[in-house]
Write a protein that binds this DNA or RNA. Structure first.
Lengths: 226, 226
DNA sequence: GTCTATAGTATGATAGAC
DNA sequence: GTCTATCATACTATAGAC
């Protein structure tokens, strides 16, 4: 069913147009899936938003579900790429806590800068057909494993609290980050200050510890011997 | 359009049957909305799950959207009721921090014990028609205001950190709680221990502060003078 | 209070012209 | 690579029998 591969390598402009159209369809699909859900979005809507007719979509995709799976995969991949970039940019001797902080920042960045794909992924994952979940599974699991290893190492080194089950901690953190796509408003301050706030809450919680213990924004507290 | 009100007050069994059927429809609708979304759920599915035929639903509801709005409202009301119960049970002199802790516990309780209505609400809110959002708006806003006041008081009394915008803090907390419906698994431990874990993370964050600073489960840290 | 039957509309997908 | 036209199916909602 895959067309539009293996084209004459010279035809640059044609190739670009083709890639662009495919990408356009995915962009519009992500936007519509995010706003109205998968089932409520029709191929006619996607087509109209892309500037073509419904039937033409089948030149680029073999089914509605194929569009869905590609939108879902893209959502995860964008976030995963942003996380790896941030974490890999750390100096060699970075602590596990610093690695998690970088991952949190990267996750938020990927999440909030590719809004439609990531929001669609988070919003509709629980509602898509099982067959789509199955095809999306590998990409999703791989990313979950990444965080799993990050947290496991950090707890072994004693940097994370040990009175809360590790899986609860990991799911809580990822869940709280993911839900920011539902309420983050770029008009109310810069992304950087937002990320600092979220990071502070994840690491230190909401309580006021007194002026003596609170560091200036951007720096985070480490264990404070009594 | 409203039938089945003002019936002969003697007919207890008839009344029960009627209420039960209406409630059954809502129960099944909530379950299906949660799993497949609003648009993807058909009246035939709701009817079949309830043990009647699609046309019969119109005796109890005037439209699909009316079912939706009632499911959405119920989701919020159940959580709000659980929160008020927990907060109102506190002694008169309770601190704002204790009030928030009780609200967190109540919110989690309401959320995870009425899974279908609350999960449906959280999952599909962003996708329902604008007309349904408008009709759902008042119930939703009222509950948001409750938390708003709770947080505002706590920050004024200095119990909450002041280096993070209050709205970010409130939305972060509610969002992280809400997202637990996506991953909470009652088979992996009791609700009570789960609630303690989440509460600990919300108030204190994920870092290990050293054995000296960590209180036994259930108790929470207050400001610790240096 | 539930049923059957159906009106009116929209959907995903396909075929074939250009 | 996109179009028009259409098939087969499904949907919400209504009407009227029981």
């Amino acid at each position: 069913m895959r067309k539009s591969r293996n084209r004459p390598s010279a035809a640059r402009s044609t190739a670009d147009t083709d890639l662009t159209k495919r990408a356009q369809i995915l962009d519009q699909a992500a936007k519509l899936f995010r706003r109205h859900g998968y089932a409520a979005t029709t191929l006619r809507q996607i087509a109209e938003a892309t500037g073509i007719k419904a039937g033409s979509i089948y030149y680029h995709f073999s089914s509605k579900e194929e569009i869905l799976v590609e939108v879902m995969d893209t959502g995860i991949r964008m976030v995963a790429a942003a996380v790896r970039e941030k974490v890999d940019a750390l100096p060699a001797g970075a602590s596990n806590r610093e690695r998690i902080a970088a991952a949190v920042e990267g996750h938020l960045y990927g999440l909030l800068h590719h809004g439609d794909f990531t929001s669609a992924n988070i919003r509709i994952y629980g509602q898509i057909p099982q067959s789509a979940k199955d095809r999306h599974r590998i990409v999703r699991l791989e990313y979950a494993d990444y965080w799993d290893r990050l947290f496991a190492k950090a707890q072994r080194s004693g940097e994370l609290r040990s009175d809360v089950p590790l899986s609860v901690m990991r799911l809580f953190v990822l869940g709280s980050l993911n839900f920011t796509v539902e309420w983050y408003n770029p008009k109310r301050g810069s992304f950087e200050s937002f990320a600092r706030s979220i990071s502070a809450l994840v690491f230190d919680g909401i309580l006021n510890l007194g002026k003596e213990l609170r560091r200036p924004p951007g720096r985070r507290r480490v264990a404070e011997p009594a």
